[in-house]
């Protein structure tokens, strides 16, 4: 029971990742594939951000006024880990860039083949 309580958050992130992965493989509509890619990316980012979390009274990674004037020493366990937040801030913006390029390619394919279904596009290519 302790094991389940300690790990169930990871399992929910893995379930989210599986949903996105299944949509990328099995769905034949191109927009559905792109939605699956978005879900996959968000699950990975969620996993990274959750590694920054510290149980037991840790606050946001923002210094208060008393800390800024050096009234007492800064305890490391008092603040959340700021490093994964920074890395994932970059990853969210990059995920929007990939979403834009993928949608542009999908619009191009619709202009050429007049369908978004993968099997019909394969039939038209042959």
């Amino acid at each position: 029971m302790d094991f389940i309580i300690a790990k169930y958050n990871y399992w929910i992130y893995i379930i989210l990742m599986m949903i996105g992965f299944y949509a990328m493989i099995a769905k034949s509509n191109l927009i559905k594939k792109i939605i699956g890619m978005n879900i996959f990316q968000t699950a990975i980012i969620l996993f990274f951000v959750s590694m920054a979390y510290k149980k037991g009274g840790a606050t946001l990674p923002i210094l208060t006024n008393a800390d800024m004037h050096g009234e007492h020493a800064i305890q490391v366990a008092q603040y959340l880990n700021p490093l994964p937040h920074v890395l994932m801030l970059t990853a969210i913006v990059v995920s929007i860039a990939t979403l834009g390029v993928a949608l542009a390619i999908a619009i191009m394919m619709y202009r050429k083949y007049h369908t978004l279904e993968e099997d019909e596009i394969l039939k038209a290519i042959k």
Binding site: Y8, Y10, S50, M51, K54, K55, A58, P82, L83
Partner: peptide, 17 residues
Amino acid sequence: WGDPNSPASIHVSPRYI
């Protein structure tokens, strides 16, 4: 999950904090 002594929290980030 949420361990304060996990390797991600004790290696680089204490210097930044």
